[in-house]
Amino acid sequence: MTAAEMNMKLAVTPRGAKPRSPFAPRNIMLYGTLIVFSIYYLLPLYVMIVTSLKDMAEIRVGNVFSPPVDITFQPWVKAWAEACTGINCDGLSRGFWNSVRILIPSLIISVSVAALTGYVLACWRFKGSEVFFGILLLGAFIPYQVLLYPLVIILRELGLFGSLWGLVLVHTIFAMPINVLLFRNYFVAIPEELFKAARVDGAGFWGIFFRIVIPMSLPIFVVSGIIQVTGIWNDFLFGVVYTRPENYPMTVQLNNIVNSVQGVKEYNVNMAATLLTGLVPLTVYFFSGKLFIRGIAAGAVKG
């Protein structure tokens, strides 16, 4: 099933039998079950929030679920600006800015490369282009572990190992299969006669891309952007492998702060830090709604 189909189906109104009176036993069971599951899914978010607002004394006497008595924002301040990893004690803010500096170029480059490649595959096929596309798609199923070391070598040869740009390249590479697929499928659906008309009108490869195709395809750029923002922000493995400690993205730094063995465990700071790290993808999620679903439905193919 393609992403577009899936999205269309999600847009259709729900089916099944008609609802009866709101308090019929069937409905109580139905909504009861849904609410119980909702609690399971919401619990961690709740726990993160309450823990991050308590001070350590309160945590020691209570449990993870007890609401804060004295609300304090000190853990947030500490997580952001003072928490230590190794020798640095300037908090998660360093990781945050690293992640931003990784995210922005990775996002721009990976989406552009994928869009352009999808455009070639949809509108300017040449002999063998489908074969290369097939190879690219297969790449989506190769476990990252298989490619970790070859990429170390490639980055070293390019002189990018350990730098932010190396990581940008890695993100671009691994983003290609799914995003190219996404763009290609979207562009294929544009009527062929439109391209013919544009060619008669004297537009070439780039003219058609920039003047005809891109203005028609904003939704798919948003979907691809959402996939990339969450994917790049949440990445841990590539961050550890391909960057030096001073360039570690937020997830890596978060893990180092929370799982560091030295010192007393400050659970409230840990939870504040965790929540801070989750904030970016959560914001994207809550604001993008249906488009996010479309994105992951598309990402579904990637596995």
Partner: peptide
């Protein structure tokens, strides 16, 4: 939408 790192740390705490 959350990373496995965030997921793991929350549940570690719970």
């Amino acid at each position: 939408a959350l990373s496995f790192i965030v997921t793991g740390l929350v549940w570690q705490w719970i």
